[in-house]
Design a protein around this nucleic acid. Structure first.
Lengths: 293, 293
DNA sequence: CCTTACTTATAAATATTTTTTATCAATTAT
DNA sequence: ATAATTGATAAAAAATATTTATAAGTAAGG
C-alpha cells in the first residue's frame, strides 16, 4: 500500500470534498475515490461517510482512528526527508535564541573553532517557542532553548546546561530602598520582551500570582534594545539574569518573598536522531559548559 | 512510495542479507535490490554499505537515521490494523493483572453489567509488564496496571485509580513482637511473586536499599496460591495491600522506619486512541471507583 | 590458481497497482 | 424542470513492482 493513499485520505478529511482533494494533488477525481476504496478494502471497514452528495462529508469512527495513525505516519515520513537531506549536506542546523546564544556561545567559541564547527552550523535565530516547533517539524537538528519548564514532549531529549533566575532590573542611575516590595513599583514603567519569548508568559503568570498590574509601556523582541532602554532609564524590566551578565549600567532589584520560576537553559534535540560523531561532539561541547561553571 | 520498501529495508537491516530477506518475504532476490535502490533514489543517498560481497552488510549513517523513522512508521501501521479490526468487532480488549482485577472488578461489576459491558470486554489476564508491552503494541485497547512508577512513556495516557502500599505479611498463627526490625526476619522463609509481576523488582530494590538478603524459598506468578501458602504458614511474603483486602488468616507486620514505594493502581490506554462512547464510558466507570473510596 | 559456491546487480519481460478518460447517477441550486 | 456539481464505475493507459534469467564479484576449498 502506498503512502499516497494516506496523504489523500488525510487531505480528504480536511477538505471534505473528493474533487477538491483531487484538485489539490493535481490528480483526477477518481484517483481519490479509488484511494479511499483501497483503504476501505485493506482495512475492511467504511472510513468515510458520504452523506447525501454535496453535503459535508464525515469520517466514521474507524476513519477517525485511522486518521490519528495516518497523521503520525506522515509526520514521521516528512522527518525522514528533512533529516536525510541535512545529513547529506554534512551540516547541522541549530536553533539559537538570542539571549542564550549571547550568553553561551562566547564560552565555547574557541572549541567550535578548534573542531571546525563554525562553518558546519547553519544558525537559525528565533524565539524559543518558534524554535521548539521547528525542531519537532524536523526543520532544525537541535536547538538551544530557554524555558521555565523542562520539555515533556516525548519526541524531545534535552540536557540542562544551566539554571538561571528571573530578575527585575533598572538603570544604575536609579536609587531604590533596600527592602523593596512589589507595591513600590506601582508607578514604574515596564519594558518587556514580547510574546515571541517565554518572558512574556512568565511575566503574565507573575502578574496573576501577585495580583499586580504593572504599566507596560513598550514591548520588543530585541533584548539588546531592551537593555539599552533600561540603561537609559526609559523604564524598568523583567528578564532572566542570562541576559544581563557582563552588562554594565544596570542593577538588579532585591525583593523579599518574591518567588519566580527557574529559567532552564537547555540543548534540545529529537529523540532518535542518530547521533553521528559530529552531532555527538557538538552536544558534548555544550555540555562541557556545565562543568566550567 | 510503498510501505513494503520500508518493510524490506527494515528486515534487510536485521538479516544483513539480500537473499535471506527476499526469502523471508517470499519474493525474489532482485525485489529487495530494487526496493533498496528505490529508497536510495528517493532520498538521493546511499543507505546500505554492501561490503565486499559475502561480507556482512551495514547501514550507512543515513541508513541508520532512516531506520529510526521506518521503525516508527511500521509500528504505527501495525497499530492501525489492530485498532480498526477491534473497532469493527465492537469489542474492547482489556488487560487485567490478577491482583488488581480481583480488587477492583467486584466494585464495578454491577456497573459493567448494567451498561452491558460484560460481553464486550475481551479480558487479557497477564502480569503488568507484559500488559504494558501488549498495550503499546496495540494488541490490547486499555489495561489496568499496577506499578511503583507512573508511566513516562509518551504514547500512554493513564488515570490513577488508587494508591496502595506494599506490606510484609505472615500467617495469623504467628506471633511477632510489636517493634519489629528487618533484621528480625533474617531466618524467615520468603514466598514472593515471580518476575512477571512488579513485586519481584520492588523486592530486589528493597533488598538493595536495606542491604538484607532474605531467604526466598518459592516464587510463583499465582498470588492466590501465594496467599494460601502464607496463610498455612509455609513462609512470609511481600505484597501490595491490594492483594490482601478481604483476606482472612493473614497479618501485616509493622515496622518502623521502613520506607517502601507506593503502588499505583491505574487504568492505562494509548494516547490518541479515539475514544468512542463505549470506551469513554468504560473509563469513567473505573474512574468512579476513586470517588467511592 | 582454478573451480565451486554463494552473493548481489542488471536487463528484459511480466504482473500488479495506480491513475486517467469517459461516462453515469444522484443530488442541489436556480 | 434544468443546469451544475459531486462522487462512483468501467475500461484503458500509465506507472510501478516483481520475476526470470543471467552476469559479475567475492570467498573458500581443493
Amino acid at each position: 500500500m502506498n503512502l499516497n493513499d494516506f496523504r489523500y485520505f488525510k487531505k480528504l478529511s480536511e477538505m471534505k470534498s473528493f474533487s477538491e482533494t483531487a484538485h489539490y494533488f493535481n490528480v483526477s477525481q477518481p484517483t481519490i475515490t479509488y484511494a479511499i476504496k483501497r483503504l476501505e478494502t485493506e482495512y475492511d471497514t467504511k472510513l468515510v461517510e458520504r452523506k447525501s452528495y454535496a453535503n459535508s462529508l464525515s469520517l466514521t469512527f474507524s476513519g477517525q482512528q485511522l486518521l490519528q495513525h495516518v497523521e503520525k505516519i506522515l509526520r514521521e515520513d516528512n522527518l525522514v526527508k528533512a533529516d536525510l537531506s541535512r545529513i547529506k549536506q554534512k551540516k547541522i542546523k541549530m536553533g539559537l535564541p538570542p539571549i542564550i546564544t549571547n550568553y553561551l556561545v562566547p564560552q565555547i567559541f574557541d572549541d567550535l573553532k578548534d573542531f571546525d564547527y563554525l562553518n558546519r552550523l547553519i544558525p537559525v535565530v528565533d524565539g524559543s517557542k518558534e524554535l521548539m516547533e521547528r525542531l519537532k517539524d524536523g526543520d532544525i537538528d537541535l536547538s538551544l532553548l530557554g524555558s521555565t519548564t523542562l520539555p515533556v514532549d516525548p519526541e524531545l531529549e534535552y540536557k540542562v546546561l544551566d539554571i538561571h533566575a528571573f530578575k527585575i532590573i533598572a538603570s544604575k542611575d536609579r536609587n531604590f530602598k533596600d527592602d523593596l516590595k512589589l507595591s513600590d513599583l506601582i508607578n514604574e514603567d515596564f519594558i518587556i520582551l514580547d510574546e515571541k519569548s517565554v518572558h512574556k508568559q512568565v511575566f503574565n503568570n507573575f502578574i496573576d500570582k501577585y495580583n499586580v498590574s504593572p504599566k507596560i509601556i513598550f514591548q520588543t523582541s530585541d533584548y539588546k534594545l531592551l537593555l539599552q532602554l533600561v540603561k537609559e532609564n526609559k523604564g524598568i524590566s523583567f528578564i532572566t539574569e542570562t541576559a544581563i551578565s557582563k552588562t554594565s549600567g544596570i542593577q538588579e532589584l532585591q525583593f523579599n518573598n518574591l518567588e519566580l520560576p527557574s529559567f532552564y537553559i537547555m540543548i534540545v534535540y529529537r529523540r532518535g536522531t542518530v547521533k553521528g560523531s559530529i552531532f555527538q561532539k557538538l552536544i558534548s561541547i555544550f555540555e562541557n559548559i556545565t562543568l566550567k561553571n
